[in-house]
C-alpha cells in the first residue's frame, strides 16, 4: 500500500490526502480541462478522468465537483491518466482493446458493452487497475451548447451560426461519461450547413428549410432548421420594447448573450415554439441599439 505523503509538493500531498479520504474529487488539469479522480482498486494511486469535449456529461453543468463516471457510453471517448502515490510515474493502458480502444496517448474509446480494466503500468510492473463499465446509452440528446435546450426545430437567421452538443443519456448509469463521435449532414446545404468536428456546428446560408441528420453509435436523429433573413432594422433612434412574449404568447429563450448582434429586435413574434435562437457566434456588426436580448 503506497503512502500518501511520499511524493510531490506539499499542496499536491494535501490534495492526495483529501482525495484519499473522499471517494472522488476534482482538480483542474494542466490545460484547464476539468478532471475527476478516483482511487485505483489496488490503492497505489488515483485514476484521473478528463473530458475530451464539453459534451461529455461529466464535464457539463454547474457542478463544480462532478463525480467520477460510473460508466462510459458506448462509443464515448475520454482521457484517463494515473497519479501514483509513491515511486515513478505510471501510464494508463487498456487491458482489452475489444472494450477500450486506444485512440491516442491516454485517450480511449469505449468500443463494446461490458466491463473492462484499465491498467496503470510502469517499467515491468502493473501498479494498479480500475474496472470501468461501458453501457449503450438509452438515447442521445442534441442540445444547444449555450442554452442547453434540445434541438427540436431550430430557427436561425441567415449568416448565423449555432453550436450543438450530443449528450449520451442512460437511465442505468448516471453520470455517464464519454464524448461521442458522430456524423452530420444537411438535406439542403444551400440553406444550412452542418459540420461535426467535436461539436455539431450549423451555419445558416440562405432563407429556407432543411433537415439535419445526425448519426452516432448507430442512432439516427433528425431535426428541422428554418432559416430566415434578418428583420428590417429599426429606424435610428427607436428602440424595441419587446419583452420576450410575442403575439403567440410563448416564452423563448434566445441566447444572444455573447453576440454583438442586435438583430434580436422584432424576431420574437416569429418564434412559435420552444426552439432556441442561437446567434451565439454571430459577428454581425449592426450598431442598432434597439436590442432587448430577451426574445
Amino acid at each position: 500500500m503506497g503512502s500518501l505523503n511520499a511524493q510531490g509538493p506539499p499542496g499536491r500531498r494535501r490534495s492526495l490526502l483529501w482525495c484519499g479520504l473522499l471517494a472522488a474529487c476534482t482538480t483542474t488539469g494542466p490545460s484547464g480541462t476539468p478532471t475527476v479522480e478516483t482511487p485505483g482498486e489496488l490503492g497505489h494511486g488515483e485514476f484521473v478522468y478528463a473530458c475530451v469535449e464539453s459534451s461529455d456529461p461529466v464535464c457539463r453543468g454547474d457542478d463544480t465537483r462532478p463525480p467520477f463516471p460510473d460508466c462510459v457510453a458506448l462509443g464515448g471517448e475520454f482521457e484517463l491518466e494515473y497519479e501514483v502515490f509513491e515511486g515513478p510515474d505510471a501510464q494508463v493502458s487498456s487491458l482489452s482493446e475489444e472494450y477500450f480502444q486506444v485512440v491516442a496517448s491516454s485517450r480511449f474509446r469505449a468500443a463494446r458493452v461490458g466491463t473492462a480494466a484499465m491498467l496503470a503500468r510502469r517499467a515491468d510492473e502493473t501498479v494498479d487497475y480500475l474496472h470501468m463499465r461501458i453501457v449503450e446509452p438509452d438515447t442521445i440528446e442534441i442540445r444547444n451548447a449555450l442554452t442547453g435546450s434540445p434541438a427540436d426545430t431550430v430557427l436561425m437567421r441567415t449568416g448565423a451560426k449555432a453550436i450543438f452538443e450530443l449528450i449520451p443519456i442512460s437511465g442505468d448509469c448516471d453520470p455517464i461519461g464519454g464524448s461521442l463521435n458522430f456524423t452530420a449532414s444537411s438535406s439542403d446545404p444551400s440553406v444550412v450547413t452542418a459540420s461535426s468536428e467535436g461539436t455539431l456546428a450549423l451555419t445558416a446560408r440562405a432563407p429556407g428549410e432543411a433537415t439535419i441528420s445526425v448519426e452516432a453509435i448507430g442512432m439516427l436523429h433528425t431535426f428541422d432548421v428554418v432559416v430566415s433573413d434578418p428583420p428590417t432594422r429599426w429606424p435610428p433612434g427607436e428602440t424595441e420594447t419587446d419583452t420576450g412574449t410575442g403575439s403567440d404568447g410563448d416564452t423563448d429563450s434566445d441566447s444572444d448573450a455573447s453576440g454583438s448582434d442586435s438583430d434580436a429586435t422584432g424576431t420574437t413574434g416569429m418564434d412559435s415554439d420552444t426552439t432556441v435562437d442561437t446567434d451565439a457566434t454571430d459577428t454581425d456588426t449592426d450598431t442598432d441599439t434597439g436590442t432587448t436580448g430577451t426574445t
Binding site: 503506497g2 489496488l42 497505489h44 487491458l95 482489452s96 475489444e98 480494466a117 491498467l119 503500468r121 515491468d124 510492473e125 502493473t126 501498479v127 487497475y129
Partner: peptide
C-alpha cells in the same frame, strides 16, 4: 491473457484479454 508483476513480491496481475 495478460500477466505482469504487481508491486509486491510474488504478486501478479492477471488479466483476461479475450
Amino acid at each position: 491473457a495478460f500477466a505482469e508483476g504487481a508491486r509486491e513480491i510474488d504478486e501478479f496481475v492477471i488479466g483476461g484479454v479475450s
